[in-house]
Amino acid sequence: MSDEHAQFLEELGAYLVGGLDPDEAGAVRRHLEECAECRDELNTLDGINELMEAAALTEPPPPGLQDRVMAAIEGEAVEARSKRGLAAIDGATASATSRELGPRRVNLSSLAMAAVFFFVLGVGLTLVLSPGSDRAPQATDATNGGVASASPSPTSLPPLKLLSSESALPTSATKTGGELTPVASGDAWECDMSVWGLERGQLYEVWIQGERGWISAGTFRVKSIEHHDFRISTGASVKTTSRIMVTVEADDGQPGPSERVILTTQRTH
């Protein structure tokens, strides 16, 4: 291979992308008329050139989309795993999870123990809101206490405010919050939840503080950063707990809450 030929060969790429000035392009064209090897190479590379031009018609996805896609898939995977895991467990107990997304590492034994504990003792705890809250004491439901004594018709307690955790959300604390309304229907206790200001793409988990520690009430993801409504099945412990919180979770299989507390509410007995 002559030096001149090698030089023209290496200029074929620049020639294809239109990156040569007219004199240089003319010299390449003249060489091509005489050199079959360079013509073959050019024919091959021209197909790649067209594909590259097609690539230029495309646009990259937004930077956060990959995380969002992966989070959605991981959510599906969690749901699938949970369905398999819960298949043999009593449905009523297993329903202590989010309605919109499947449960994730719900501590069923703790949940059941908490429900039984409160039922047996006939918990006489009356929910009293923190100072400044607009929640009224729920004498009837709370003093009757327990899962079995819940009214057969839907009964709701006044909503609880979920406040942003300053440590977790230093920049958007004023825009982040939520509300949680416990609703009893027959023996089941659920909560209507509204949250706002939470990032999409994250996996959130609702935790209820019980006698033996934190109990997961299910996971959720938000569809909109502005506002997201959903319902979770919490069990009766939501009536008597002293604290509820929402954390950001990494879906890493850890049984307890992460340290990233996003929302929290405090009750006093």
């Binding site: 790429g13 050019l42 024919n43 091959t44 021209d46 197909g47 050139n49 594909l51």
Partner: peptide, 20 residues
């Protein structure tokens, strides 16, 4: 460009040669 040719071929994308 030559490397792209190999990479694309490995992913089943083979451009049609352009006759000149």
């Amino acid at each position: 460009l030559k490397r792209m040719k190999d990479v694309l071929a490995s992913r089943g994308i083979v451009p049609e040669a352009v006759e000149r």
